[in-house]
């Protein structure tokens, strides 16, 4: 499915990865990317405009190959989306967790060009008409937020878990947050939130 979306957009993952690799290595952008009959590719050099859906809305943004998804969301969009936080900038803390085609990823470790044609969801897009999701409600109710800087990341990790498995146990929700760090020490409260989410969703299924 993801492949299909990429193809529609006229960009292949392989081309992007090659481009990204050359940037990471510190060299100039690859000037030549072999044309693949089955998946047309494009060379990216300098600023380019990508299109993706952000919380369900078609979004365009101009980025460079080096721009991370996190930077694109926070600093390059016409309407900045700042819920995902930059904390470690190396994929260690999960504060920038967003859903990319429904999978949790660290936006600081994802190049913006890689989300072209794909669907990104952030914490800003979860509540519908102001109504919080069960995960959001539970974290608020159990005092799972102190300074709150890590909160969006925990919300997204738990959200991905319950979307994957609506009958997720509290333990599974806890494990879904293994990549998330909190410094204030809200963990026990987040674990209680996980129990509450699991309880509520299980009751709903019954």
């Amino acid at each position: 499915m993801a492949e299909g979306r990429e193809r529609d957009a006229g960009l292949s993952r392989r081309a992007f990865l090659k481009g990204a690799g050359s940037v990471a290595a510190g060299g100039a952008l690859i000037q030549e990317v072999a044309a693949e009959a089955a998946s047309p590719s494009r060379t990216i050099d300098g600023a380019t405009t990508i299109e993706f859906t952000l919380n369900g809305a078609k979004t365009e943004v101009e980025v460079e190959p080096r721009t991370t998804l996190l930077s694109a969301l926070r600093s390059h969009l016409a309407i900045p989306h700042t819920a995902a936080k930059e904390v470690c900038d190396q994929g260690s803390c999960g504060a920038c967790t967003v859903l990319l085609d429904d999978e949790p990823v660290c936006a600081c470790m994802t190049l913006a060009v890689l989300v072209h044609g794909r669907a990104v969801r952030t914490v800003e897009g979860l509540a519908v008409n102001g109504e919080l999701t069960p995960v959001q409600r539970a974290i608020a109710a159990e005092d799972g937020t102190m300074c709150g800087f890590c909160t969006p990341g925990f919300v997204m990790s738990m959200t991905a878990c319950v979307e994957r498995n609506p009958a997720a146990s509290a333990q599974e929700l806890r494990e879904a947050c293994r990549g998330n760090l909190c410094r204030c020490g809200t963990y026990p409260h987040l674990f209680r939130a996980a129990e509450r989410v699991s309880r509520e969703l299980t009751e709903e299924i019954r």
Partner: peptide
């Protein structure tokens, strides 16, 4: 309940960052 909790869980709490 913490007053800011709802803003924090929906990403509406604005930090200096």
């Amino acid at each position: 309940p913490r007053r800011s909790a709802k803003d924090k869980v929906r990403g509406a709490a604005l930090y200096s960052h």
